[in-house]
Structure formats: C-alpha cells, structure tokens
C-alpha cells in the first residue's frame, strides 16, 4: 500500500526514535511511505495561536504536494501535525471562501482530496488488528501498559471522526493484539501541556505530573504514546516532576511503534529505544523482551 508520509519536524528531531520506529513498522506491514517532497512545518501551536490564515496555508501547501504525488492518503504520526493537517483539510472542504483565499496564497488549487490519518486511525482502519496480531512473533506478555492518547489523536471529534474523544480504546486494542495488558486509567485523553514545553514549563510540569501520577496509581509499568509532544514532555520532564513532588515514577515513555517493532521481532537498537531518557531496558529485560 502506498501512502504519503508527513514526518514533521519532531520526527526528525526531538522524537527521532518515533520516526525510526514508524519506518521500521510500516515497512514490515508492507506500507510504502512516500515522504511529502520538500514538506514544510505544519505551523504547530505558534501559527494557530497567532495567524489563522497562515496555519491553514502552511498545511495546504503540504496537502497540495501530496495530491500532486497522486496520493489519496496522508499519514501524519505526530498528533500535532495531524491535527493541523486534518483541521486544514476540514476547513478547506467546508469553507469555500477560505479555500479560494488559501488557493490564492499557495498559488495552487485548494487541496481537498487527500485524507489525513494519524497512526492509530491508520492501523485500525487500513491495517486492522488481525494484521498486527498475525505479525506478532514476540508477544508483549506480562507488560501492564497505560495507553496514552492525549488531546489531538481523537479531538475535536467533528474533525477527527475517529474513536471516542474522551474514552478512546484503539491503542489499548492494538497493544492487546500484541499480547500486552492495558490498565484502566483516568488520564488517557487528558493534556500533557503540549506546546508549552519550553515557553511556560510550569504548565507542563503540572499537567504531565497529573498524567504520570494517574498512570502510576493505575499500576502501569510504562506509558505508551503516539505523539512526540506527549512523549517528550512525559519523558524529559519526568525527573523534574518527581523532584518537585518528592516522588519516584521511573515510568518509561515508549512510542507505540517501538513496542510494535519489538513484537514483530526487531531489536531495541533498530527501534531507537536507547534514545529514550527514562530507560525502558530494566522493564523489557524483566519480561524477556530485550
């Protein structure tokens, strides 16, 4: 299967291991990732915070290139990029005045054709749980995982139209298909603090702190993420949060595709597991998975 691939800035930078493992897993599933040629940043929090037309236009350029590559689906594993691309696509489809303006700005036909999927949606709708289960040669037995969706993989519901906005289940099902247990917890779709990581770190320490606390109280061994902002915030701020609360978490924050790679028989080195700040190795070794 051919799909347009939008890695976004984070998968080339702070969440490189997410990008590496997405590529490994997709190749294994027989998916050809066609990187959108010369893609630009989606504008992230900055553009939608200060300039609505710019945020739509930045995404429109990327969607137009995908369309010109004759791709009818775009896979955006970063939840932030996904939200911008999907949101722009939704507005271009539903607001013809805006679509015409954006067409002028990007000097191309407004790209309404390509569908945009996040990783969870893509696995559920285009691959299916059976494909994941069939490829599993090293079941994730004994792992108790907190599937963490954050905000943007399922919200806003009118735009995303996938899973439940506040009680999502898709990632739990994918992990279960690979033999893992998932915990029931309250914060699976709460916010980690997102784009405030550097600009107002206290917000991230507060909100990510709630997520870590909730996962620990539910008895999880690790938190599984499908978003670089969630991943980086929960991982890189964990020490500071623990110090602030006078507690210990030691919760590895693992990208979903890294665990898929392990279940499919790849080595930790092939999946960039060493790049995680909170080491997942003691946990994985104790379950015979690394």
């Amino acid at each position: 299967m051919n799909v347009a691939y939008f890695p976004g800035c984070s998968l080339h930078g702070l969440a490189k291991e997410y990008g590496i493992s997405v590529e490994v897993v997709c190749k294994h599933l027989g998916i050809n990732l066609n990187e959108i040629e010369d893609w630009n940043c989606c504008g992230a929090t900055a553009a939608h915070s200060l300039n609505h037309e710019l945020t739509i236009s930045l995404s429109a350029r990327n969607l137009a290139i995908a369309r010109d590559m004759k791709m009818n689906k775009v896979l955006a594993p970063c939840a932030g990029c996904f939200s911008r691309l999907k949101g722009a696509s939704y507005e271009l489809r539903n607001n013809s005045v805006l679509a015409a303006e954006v067409g002028e700005i990007i000097q191309a036909e407004p790209p309404v054709e390509p569908e945009v999927s996040n990783l969870l949606q893509f696995i559920m709708e285009d691959q299916g749980l059976n494909a994941v289960a069939e490829k599993t040669i090293k079941p994730l037995q004994g792992l108790k995982l907190a599937a963490y969706y954050g905000c943007l993989l399922t919200r806003p519901k009118d735009v995303v139209q996938f899973d439940d906005p506040e009680q999502p289940i898709s990632m739990d099902l994918i992990l279960q298909a690979m033999g893992a247990d998932t915990v029931v917890w309250a914060h699976k779709a709460e916010c980690c603090g997102g784009g405030y990581a550097a600009s107002d770190t206290d917000i991230v320490l507060d909100l990510s702190g709630q997520v870590l606390e909730s996962a620990q109280q539910a008895g999880a061994d690790a938190i599984v993420v499908a978003c670089p902002m969630c991943g980086v915030n929960l991982d890189s701020r964990q020490e500071a949060i623990a110090a602030k609360k006078g507690k210990k978490y030691d919760l590895p924050i693992i990208y979903l595709t890294q665990l898929m790679g392990i279940a499919f028989g790849y080595s930790p080195a092939q999946l960039g597991l060493k790049r995680l700040l909170t080491s997942p190795f003691p946990l994985l070794q104790s379950k015979g998975l690394a």
Binding site: P156, C191, G195, Y196, D200
Partner: peptide, 12 residues
C-alpha cells in the same frame, strides 16, 4: 489566552 492548551475538551 496565553495559558489555554487547546486540548479541545470544551468544544467536544
């Protein structure tokens, strides 16, 4: 305006 995390819970 400057502390909203745009988590989309309110609209949903």
């Amino acid at each position: 305006l400057w502390s909203c995390v745009a988590c989309q819970l309110c609209v949903d």
